[in-house]
Protein backbone atom coordinates (compact mmCIF):
# COMPACT_ATOMS: atom_id res chain seq x y z
CA UNK A 1 0.00 0.00 0.00
CA UNK A 2 2.70 2.48 1.03
CA UNK A 3 4.79 2.43 -2.19
CA UNK A 4 1.65 3.05 -4.27
CA UNK A 5 0.59 5.83 -1.92
CA UNK A 6 3.98 7.56 -2.09
CA UNK A 7 4.41 7.28 -5.87
CA UNK A 8 0.83 8.29 -6.69
CA UNK A 9 0.92 11.19 -4.24
CA UNK A 10 4.27 12.41 -5.58
CA UNK A 11 3.20 12.45 -9.20
CA UNK A 12 -0.29 13.87 -8.53
CA UNK A 13 1.34 16.48 -6.28
CA UNK A 14 3.62 17.59 -9.12
CA UNK A 15 0.83 17.76 -11.69
CA UNK A 16 -1.47 19.28 -9.04
CA UNK A 17 0.80 22.27 -8.52
CA UNK A 18 0.56 23.09 -12.22
CA UNK A 19 -3.22 22.49 -12.36
CA UNK A 20 -3.66 24.69 -9.27
CA UNK A 21 -1.76 27.53 -10.94
CA UNK A 22 -3.74 27.14 -14.17
CA UNK A 23 -7.03 27.19 -12.23
CA UNK A 24 -5.96 30.37 -10.42
CA UNK A 25 -4.72 32.03 -13.61
CA UNK A 26 -8.00 31.32 -15.40
CA UNK A 27 -10.32 32.08 -12.50
CA UNK A 28 -13.25 34.09 -13.75
CA UNK A 29 -12.78 33.07 -17.38
CA UNK A 30 -15.96 31.51 -18.72
CA UNK A 31 -15.77 27.79 -19.49
CA UNK A 32 -12.43 27.23 -17.76
CA UNK A 33 -13.79 24.29 -15.73
CA UNK A 34 -14.54 22.36 -18.90
CA UNK A 35 -11.20 23.22 -20.47
CA UNK A 36 -9.17 22.20 -17.42
CA UNK A 37 -11.22 19.01 -16.92
CA UNK A 38 -10.77 18.23 -20.60
CA UNK A 39 -7.03 18.83 -20.22
CA UNK A 40 -6.86 16.42 -17.29
CA UNK A 41 -8.91 13.78 -19.13
CA UNK A 42 -6.73 14.03 -22.24
CA UNK A 43 -3.66 13.79 -19.99
CA UNK A 44 -4.93 10.63 -18.28
CA UNK A 45 -5.66 9.05 -21.65
CA UNK A 46 -2.25 10.09 -22.97
CA UNK A 47 -0.58 8.74 -19.82
CA UNK A 48 -2.10 5.30 -20.40
CA UNK A 49 -1.00 5.30 -24.05
CA UNK A 50 2.55 6.43 -23.18
CA UNK A 51 2.82 3.88 -20.36
CA UNK A 52 1.64 1.13 -22.71
CA UNK A 53 4.30 2.01 -25.27
CA UNK A 54 7.16 2.84 -22.89
CA UNK A 55 9.36 0.04 -24.12
CA UNK A 56 8.72 0.81 -27.77
CA UNK A 57 9.19 4.52 -27.17
CA UNK A 58 12.53 3.95 -25.44
CA UNK A 59 13.84 1.99 -28.39
CA UNK A 60 13.09 4.71 -30.93
CA UNK A 61 15.83 7.04 -32.20
CA UNK A 62 18.71 4.82 -31.15
CA UNK A 63 17.36 4.34 -27.64
CA UNK A 64 16.66 8.02 -27.03
CA UNK A 65 12.95 8.03 -27.88
CA UNK A 66 11.88 8.73 -24.33
CA UNK A 67 14.20 11.72 -24.00
CA UNK A 68 13.12 13.17 -27.34
CA UNK A 69 9.47 12.69 -26.51
CA UNK A 70 9.87 14.41 -23.14
CA UNK A 71 11.91 17.24 -24.65
CA UNK A 72 9.26 17.78 -27.37
CA UNK A 73 6.22 17.88 -25.09
CA UNK A 74 8.06 20.08 -22.59
CA UNK A 75 9.08 22.39 -25.42
CA UNK A 76 5.46 22.58 -26.54
CA UNK A 77 4.35 23.38 -22.97
CA UNK A 78 6.95 26.17 -22.80
CA UNK A 79 5.55 27.62 -26.04
CA UNK A 80 1.98 27.46 -24.71
CA UNK A 81 2.93 29.11 -21.42
CA UNK A 82 4.85 31.82 -23.28
CA UNK A 83 1.91 32.49 -25.63
CA UNK A 84 -0.44 32.67 -22.68
CA UNK A 85 1.68 35.29 -20.97
CA UNK A 86 2.05 37.34 -24.13
CA UNK A 87 -1.71 37.29 -24.86
CA UNK A 88 -2.46 38.11 -21.27
CA UNK A 89 0.03 40.99 -21.21
CA UNK A 90 -2.29 42.61 -23.71
CA UNK A 91 -5.68 41.51 -22.47
CA UNK A 92 -5.23 40.25 -18.93
CA UNK A 93 -6.05 43.54 -17.32
CA UNK A 94 -9.25 43.91 -19.29
CA UNK A 95 -10.24 40.43 -18.21
CA UNK A 96 -9.28 41.08 -14.61
CA UNK A 97 -11.15 44.38 -14.67
CA UNK A 98 -14.38 42.54 -15.50
CA UNK A 99 -14.41 44.08 -18.95
CA UNK A 100 -15.08 40.76 -20.52
CA UNK A 101 -17.54 42.21 -22.98
CA UNK A 102 -14.56 43.45 -25.00
CA UNK A 103 -14.54 40.92 -27.85
CA UNK A 104 -10.77 40.89 -28.26
CA UNK A 105 -10.23 40.15 -24.61
CA UNK A 106 -12.65 37.23 -24.72
CA UNK A 107 -10.89 35.82 -27.79
CA UNK A 108 -7.51 36.12 -26.07
CA UNK A 109 -9.04 34.52 -22.99
CA UNK A 110 -10.24 31.45 -24.84
CA UNK A 111 -6.99 31.12 -26.81
CA UNK A 112 -5.13 31.26 -23.51
CA UNK A 113 -7.49 28.75 -22.00
CA UNK A 114 -6.75 26.31 -24.81
CA UNK A 115 -3.00 26.88 -24.37
CA UNK A 116 -3.20 26.29 -20.62
CA UNK A 117 -5.42 23.22 -21.08
CA UNK A 118 -2.63 21.81 -23.28
CA UNK A 119 -0.13 22.51 -20.48
CA UNK A 120 -2.40 20.65 -18.03
CA UNK A 121 -2.60 17.72 -20.47
CA UNK A 122 1.19 17.57 -20.73
CA UNK A 123 1.69 17.77 -16.95
CA UNK A 124 -0.86 15.01 -16.32
CA UNK A 125 0.54 12.90 -19.16
CA UNK A 126 4.11 13.10 -17.89
CA UNK A 127 3.38 12.39 -14.24
CA UNK A 128 0.47 10.05 -14.99
CA UNK A 129 2.43 7.76 -17.31
CA UNK A 130 4.87 7.07 -14.46
CA UNK A 131 1.96 6.25 -12.13
CA UNK A 132 0.34 3.91 -14.66
CA UNK A 133 3.61 2.15 -15.41
CA UNK A 134 4.46 1.77 -11.74
CA UNK A 135 1.02 0.54 -10.63
CA UNK A 136 0.80 -1.79 -13.59
CA UNK A 137 4.10 -3.35 -12.54
CA UNK A 138 2.99 -3.67 -8.92
CA UNK A 139 -0.28 -5.27 -10.01
CA UNK A 140 1.53 -7.65 -12.35
CA UNK A 141 4.01 -8.62 -9.63
CA UNK A 142 1.23 -9.29 -7.15
CA UNK A 143 -0.83 -11.21 -9.70
CA UNK A 144 -3.58 -8.62 -9.93
CA UNK A 145 -4.53 -5.30 -8.43
CA UNK A 146 -4.51 -5.76 -4.67
CA UNK A 147 -6.77 -3.92 -2.25
CA UNK A 148 -3.69 -2.39 -0.61
CA UNK A 149 -2.43 -0.99 -3.88
CA UNK A 150 -5.82 0.48 -4.75
CA UNK A 151 -6.27 2.04 -1.30
CA UNK A 152 -2.73 3.43 -1.40
CA UNK A 153 -3.31 4.83 -4.86
CA UNK A 154 -6.65 6.36 -3.87
CA UNK A 155 -5.17 8.04 -0.77
CA UNK A 156 -2.27 9.32 -2.88
CA UNK A 157 -4.71 10.72 -5.43
CA UNK A 158 -6.79 12.45 -2.73
CA UNK A 159 -3.74 13.95 -0.99
CA UNK A 160 -2.28 15.06 -4.31
CA UNK A 161 -5.56 16.69 -5.31
CA UNK A 162 -5.53 18.49 -1.97
CA UNK A 163 -2.20 20.07 -2.97
CA UNK A 164 -3.83 21.23 -6.20
CA UNK A 165 -6.71 22.74 -4.23
CA UNK A 166 -4.40 24.44 -1.72
CA UNK A 167 -2.28 25.92 -4.53
CA UNK A 168 -5.42 27.27 -6.15
CA UNK A 169 -6.89 28.65 -2.93
CA UNK A 170 -3.61 30.20 -1.90
CA UNK A 171 -3.32 32.00 -5.23
CA UNK A 172 -6.90 33.23 -5.52
CA UNK A 173 -6.66 34.61 -1.97
CA UNK A 174 -4.21 37.17 -3.40
CA UNK A 175 -5.90 40.53 -4.11
CA UNK A 176 -6.88 40.83 -7.79
CA UNK A 177 -4.60 43.77 -8.51
CA UNK A 178 -1.52 41.71 -7.51
CA UNK A 179 -2.78 38.39 -8.86
CA UNK A 180 -2.08 39.20 -12.50
CA UNK A 181 1.56 40.13 -11.85
CA UNK A 182 2.15 37.16 -9.57
CA UNK A 183 0.59 34.58 -11.90
CA UNK A 184 2.46 35.99 -14.92
CA UNK A 185 5.69 35.63 -12.98
CA UNK A 186 4.77 32.09 -11.89
CA UNK A 187 3.92 31.08 -15.46
CA UNK A 188 7.19 32.57 -16.78
CA UNK A 189 9.22 30.70 -14.13
CA UNK A 190 7.28 27.50 -14.84
CA UNK A 191 8.11 27.88 -18.55
CA UNK A 192 11.80 28.58 -17.85
CA UNK A 193 12.02 25.50 -15.61
CA UNK A 194 10.39 23.30 -18.24
CA UNK A 195 12.71 24.65 -20.94
CA UNK A 196 15.74 23.83 -18.77
CA UNK A 197 14.32 20.34 -18.19
CA UNK A 198 13.77 19.87 -21.92
CA UNK A 199 17.39 20.74 -22.63
CA UNK A 200 18.49 18.31 -19.91
CA UNK A 201 16.65 15.53 -21.77
CA UNK A 202 18.44 16.50 -25.01
CA UNK A 203 21.75 16.40 -23.15
CA UNK A 204 20.87 12.99 -21.75
CA UNK A 205 20.03 11.78 -25.27
CA UNK A 206 23.52 12.88 -26.32
CA UNK A 207 21.98 15.20 -28.91
CA UNK A 208 22.91 18.44 -27.31
CA UNK A 209 26.19 18.31 -25.48
CA UNK A 210 27.54 21.85 -25.35
CA UNK A 211 28.07 23.50 -21.95
CA UNK A 212 27.21 20.33 -20.11
CA UNK A 213 29.41 20.85 -17.07
CA UNK A 214 27.76 21.14 -13.66
CA UNK A 215 27.94 24.73 -12.45
CA UNK A 216 27.11 24.36 -8.77
CA UNK A 217 25.89 21.81 -6.26
CA UNK A 218 23.34 22.91 -3.69
CA UNK A 219 22.18 19.39 -2.84
CA UNK A 220 23.54 19.86 0.69
CA UNK A 221 21.11 22.77 1.24
CA UNK A 222 18.13 21.53 -0.74
CA UNK A 223 18.12 18.20 -2.50
CA UNK A 224 16.07 17.55 -5.63
CA UNK A 225 14.74 14.49 -3.85
CA UNK A 226 13.27 16.36 -0.87
CA UNK A 227 9.60 17.37 -1.00
CA UNK A 228 10.46 21.05 -1.08
CA UNK A 229 13.07 20.36 -3.78
CA UNK A 230 10.47 18.53 -5.86
CA UNK A 231 7.90 21.28 -5.42
CA UNK A 232 10.41 23.96 -6.42
CA UNK A 233 11.58 21.81 -9.32
CA UNK A 234 8.03 21.70 -10.67
CA UNK A 235 7.26 25.35 -9.94
CA UNK A 236 10.44 27.22 -10.84
CA UNK A 237 12.65 24.50 -12.29
CA UNK A 238 14.96 24.15 -9.28
CA UNK A 239 17.77 21.63 -9.80
CA UNK A 240 20.49 21.11 -7.21
CA UNK A 241 23.21 20.46 -9.79
CA UNK A 242 22.42 22.43 -12.95
CA UNK A 243 24.55 22.31 -16.08
CA UNK A 244 25.70 25.53 -17.71
CA UNK A 245 23.36 24.88 -20.66
CA UNK A 246 20.37 24.48 -18.34
CA UNK A 247 21.15 27.86 -16.76
CA UNK A 248 21.58 29.51 -20.17
CA UNK A 249 18.27 28.09 -21.45
CA UNK A 250 16.52 29.05 -18.21
CA UNK A 251 17.72 32.65 -18.41
CA UNK A 252 17.05 32.89 -22.14
CA UNK A 253 13.46 31.63 -21.75
CA UNK A 254 12.75 34.10 -18.95
CA UNK A 255 14.30 36.93 -20.97
CA UNK A 256 12.37 36.01 -24.14
CA UNK A 257 9.01 35.83 -22.35
CA UNK A 258 9.61 39.09 -20.48
CA UNK A 259 10.68 40.86 -23.67
CA UNK A 260 7.71 39.57 -25.70
CA UNK A 261 5.31 40.54 -22.92
CA UNK A 262 6.70 44.08 -23.00
CA UNK A 263 6.58 44.25 -26.79
CA UNK A 264 3.00 43.06 -27.05
CA UNK A 265 1.67 44.82 -23.99
CA UNK A 266 -0.88 47.59 -24.29
CA UNK A 267 0.92 50.95 -24.60
CA UNK A 268 1.59 52.39 -21.16
CA UNK A 269 -0.73 55.38 -21.73
CA UNK A 270 -3.74 53.08 -21.96
CA UNK A 271 -2.98 51.29 -18.73
CA UNK A 272 -3.99 52.41 -15.28
CA UNK A 273 -0.50 51.55 -13.96
CA UNK A 274 2.60 49.88 -15.35
CA UNK A 275 3.33 46.18 -14.83
Amino acid sequence: MLPSLVIVFREVFEAGLIIGIVMAVTSGVAGRGRWVAGGVAAGVFGACVVALFTRGLSQLFGGSGQELFNACILGFAVLMLGCHNVWMARHGRELAAEMRAAGEAVAAGSKSLAALAAVVTIAVLREGSEVVLFLYGVAAAEGGASIGMLIGGAIGLILGSLVCLLTYMGLVAIPTRYLFGITSTLIALLAAGMAAQAIAFLQQADIFTAFDQTVWDTSWILSDESWLGRALHTLIGYVDQPTAMQLIVYAATLAAITLLMKLFAVPAAQRPHAA
Partner: peptide
Protein backbone atom coordinates in the same frame (compact mmCIF):
# COMPACT_ATOMS: atom_id res chain seq x y z
CA UNK B 1 21.01 14.38 -10.01
CA UNK B 2 24.79 14.39 -10.22
CA UNK B 3 24.82 12.69 -13.61
CA UNK B 4 21.79 14.65 -14.90
CA UNK B 5 19.86 11.58 -15.95
CA UNK B 6 16.28 10.47 -15.45
CA UNK B 7 14.81 7.61 -17.42
CA UNK B 8 11.87 5.29 -16.92
CA UNK B 9 12.66 1.64 -17.63
CA UNK B 10 9.74 -0.74 -18.12
CA UNK B 11 9.90 -4.22 -16.56
CA UNK B 12 12.09 -6.34 -18.82
CA UNK B 13 13.22 -3.22 -20.62
Amino acid sequence: DALHVEKVIAPGG
